[in-house]
């Protein structure tokens, strides 16, 4: 069962993931213009994109622990999910800039002056080179450096979680839950490596 699921996951063409990923912002735009996002569609879209971007990044962090502790292997979706999350967060930034703040001088003042905007911008800027190098050619060209570079994802997600907490008024559970999950998923990677080693095929056969 899991094998068949894993095969289906591996065989999913990435264009399908990108298509599904692109559908959400298109739907948000449609809903916003036709009144489906309530009386303040700009904020609704801005928040929805930021949150979806963060959720996908959390999902990206979840892929390797799932592989390690369960039979589920989503590794072949990771790159597409990472790129989609980057585009959601980029759109989140653009909606904030163009539809929400609108005034360019004020956008710039906020970027240099407001701590929660600075943290959010830092996260977006960290994701930029990761998105740009999310292709086979870059993997070949950068070699071992590619893996190292893409470890920056941890920092970007962490900053994203902090950015979410920093923009709330008063106490709310949800952003803290996100941050705890993010820190937990990053901490999981620090578990001793030997637990990760799977029994060799031969060893397993002999045991049976």
């Amino acid at each position: 069962m899991t094998d068949r699921l894993n095969t289906a996951i591996r065989k999913t063409p990435s264009w399908l993931l990108y298509l599904v990923g692109a559908a959400y912002p298109v739907w948000l735009l449609y809903a916003g213009v036709t009144g489906g996002l309530g009386v303040d569609p700009v904020k609704a879209m801005e928040h929805a994109l930021g949150k979806a971007g963060l959720q996908i990044l959390v999902a990206v962090l979840l892929i390797s622990p799932l592989r390690r502790f369960t039979p589920l292997n989503l590794l072949s979706w990771r790159r597409a999910l990472g790129v989609i999350s980057f585009f959601y967060i980029l759109l989140h930034f653009l909606v904030w800039m163009v539809l929400d703040v609108q005034i360019l001088s004020q956008v710039w003042a906020d970027i240099v002056k407001r701590p929660y905007i600075i943290v959010g911008m830092a996260s977006l800027l960290i994701l930029l080179p990761l998105a740009v190098t999310s292709n086979n050619r870059s993997v070949r060209k950068l070699g071992p450096k590619w893996r190292k570079l893409h470890k920056a994802t941890y920092l970007a997600v962490l900053l994203g979680g902090i950015h979410y907490i920093m923009q709330i008024k008063s106490f709310q559970y949800e952003p803290y839950v996100y941050l705890i999950v993010i820190v937990g998923l990053i901490a999981l990677r620090r578990l001793p490596k030997r637990q990760m080693r799977r029994p060799k095929k031969g060893a397993l056969q002999r045991a049976v």
Binding site: V33, V39, D40, V42, L99, A109
Partner: peptide
């Protein structure tokens, strides 16, 4: 401390409402 108070967004003006 976290945002400017120099301008405001009128609610009810839809998607492209000007500040």
């Amino acid at each position: 401390p976290r945002w400017s108070q120099a301008s405001e967004r009128p609610i009810g003006g839809g998607f492209f409402a000007k500040r």
